[in-house]
Design a protein around this nucleic acid. Structure first.
Lengths: 103, 103
DNA sequence: AGTATATGCAACTAAATAGTTGCATAATAA
DNA sequence: TTATTATGCAACTATTTAGTTGCATATACT
């Protein structure tokens, strides 16, 4: 899964809200994740498609309703990217400091 | 800065590439960040606008050229979000485990 | 002074996104 | 069985995005 697609999926207030609900709440079906977001059920459903394609979420049909579950493993790629950028940036600054200090 | 906007800015392969260059490389001007991306200078410039509005990057004009610098502090919001989701998710699983085990 | 370089700004197009409404269907509840 | 609920699918619109080209301008180099 390309990192950009994960970030892209997280790059929307409604989808972030969904993720937050899923991470903290108990059990969620499609409708329960989709209510009180200020948009229609079908609108919300499209957002869930985005999260699903980015493997942030898994949909598990169960009788008449569909349960939505978070897939926390996916966050690791995003986390790694950020941590790496910060690490490399720190190294840059360290090198720069050495360069400035040498004379 | 809303978290979603930061994620959104990172949610594109070209912008991710720019960020990676900036985190590791030495000194970058607008043109040097914008070359070898497969798009035109003006196309790349628009991506830099996105990164700038999300405060991921700062532009510092200097004579005829403009230097581009990373703003690593901004990544903290994104990192916090991810860490929080993972933490809450772990708590959920722990609680669930307790619930299942109790009888 | 004249040329080359780094950048900015604007107009335009094609494609993707976010959202809607309407209708259909399968599973549950009364 | 009839009504209700959870969902799916499709068509449609408005807006945003990604990219382009063309032209203007200011700084730097020779």
């Amino acid at each position: 899964m390309p990192t950009a697609e994960i970030f892209r999926a997280l790059g929307d207030p409604i989808r972030l809200e969904m993720v937050q609900r899923l991470s903290s709440g108990s059990s969620y079906t499609l409708t329960s994740v989709s209510t009180n977001l200020g948009i229609s059920r079908q609108g919300a459903r499209k957002h869930l498609d985005v999260l699903q394609h980015a493997h942030i979420v898994v949909l598990k049909p169960h009788g008449r309703d569909v349960f939505v579950e978070l897939e926390p493993a996916t966050f690791d790629a995003a986390k790694e990217f950020i941590l790496n950028v910060e690490k490399q940036w720190d190294r840059r600054l360290a090198k720069l400091k050495l360069f400035v200090e040498e004379d």
